[in-house]
Simulated scan of single mutants.
Amino acid sequence: MLLALDVGNTNTVFALIDGGEPVAQWRASTSSQWTADEYAVWLSQMLSIDGTFKLTDLTDCIISTVVPQSLFNLRNFARRYCGGEPMIVDEKSVPGIEVRIDRPSEVGADRLVNAVGAHVKYGGPLVVVDSGTATNFDVVGEDGAFLGGIIAPGINLSMQALHTAAARLPRIAIERPPKVIGTTTVGAMQAGVFWGYVDLIEGLLARIREEFGAPMKVVATGGISSLYKDAAKTIDYFDPDLTIRGLTEIARRIRSA
């Protein structure tokens, strides 16, 4: 059984893949301090709670990480508990995708994985909007090539900046406000953060489409995407499993290469 690890700046997703399909998934806070054995203990506990699988069922591992400091311990974890050397996603290790940007080595593993996962299911050309710590807009060509994109601050960063930089502004929850014009401080902040984020997405998508010059599908993913699902009208598909699908496809390609 394949273990797919998607290591983001904020959270790490652990997904079990059996026969090419995800069968279980868990999320933990990302920590570059966890040892290989701590990963094993945590995952064993999750497997025990689920009751369907065991750590000894793992035979292979693929890792996508944007936190380089975590890779050493994750490699050791995979070697000890997942059957051997893991597959590591980078611009040189993903078969079947051409990275057409000025410096291919700079593209994050998460962006390549999303490009593969989106193109496999939806075809191209398309834009992947991945909402996390940052909000990535990744452009994928008709042939599946990675063409570049935009990196913008995520909604949590905007909220944190408001609270940190302005002494009288409180920390607020992320939610859609009942109206645009806030009549309280919290309501005004929620309107600014929520609708500002939605308009950032729709405005940048409009500019991408204008510059690209051809019809494009738009796929949204990431932990925050459900927040604006009913508000961002320019998004065609919401796909929370996009990254895991991309990792599964990349693992399949590497095995068969």
Rank of each mutant, 00 (worst) to 15 (best):
E91G: 03
S44K: 13
L242M: 05
G96S: 05
L242Y: 04
F77A: 13
F53G: 03
V186H: 15
G203H: 11
N73K: 15
R103N: 15
D230C: 08
L74A: 12
K92C: 09
E106G: 02
I254Y: 05
I250G: 07
L71H: 06
M216Q: 02
A134L: 00
D230G: 14
I63Q: 10
V23C: 11
T234N: 08
W34G: 01
V127H: 03
S105N: 13
R253Y: 03
T234R: 09
A231C: 10
W26E: 01
Y81M: 09
E142M: 00
G84R: 11
I254G: 03
N156D: 04
E85T: 15
D143I: 07
K121V: 14
V116Y: 13
M189R: 11
L157G: 09
C61Y: 02
D37G: 11
M46A: 11
A167W: 07
R168W: 03
A15D: 05
A78Y: 07
C61S: 03
L55P: 11
H119T: 08
A191E: 15
V94P: 06
V139E: 00
Q160N: 04
Y237N: 10
A161Y: 01
D143A: 08
R103C: 13
V218I: 09
L242I: 03
V140W: 03
R103I: 15
R171W: 03
S131I: 04
A109W: 02
G222N: 13
V66K: 03
L147C: 00
G141F: 00
F146Q: 00
Q45F: 05
F194G: 15
P22M: 12
T221H: 14
S48E: 09
R207P: 01
W34T: 09
K233I: 14
G149H: 08
T133Y: 00
P240W: 07
T35N: 11
L204H: 09
T248Y: 02
V107T: 13
V129S: 00
R176Q: 15
V128P: 02
F53L: 05
V129Y: 02
G196E: 01
D90H: 15
V193I: 14
P170Y: 13
I201T: 02
T234M: 11
E202V: 04
L16E: 00
M1E: 07
H119G: 08
T35C: 10
W26L: 07
S70F: 09
E91W: 12
F77Y: 14
S64C: 15
E38R: 14
M46L: 10
P86G: 10
P177E: 12
L205D: 11
A78G: 09
V67E: 01
A145E: 05
M46F: 04
G51E: 02
R207K: 06
S158D: 01
T185M: 09
K179T: 10
N76R: 15
V127P: 10
S256C: 11
R168K: 14
F146A: 01
M216C: 07
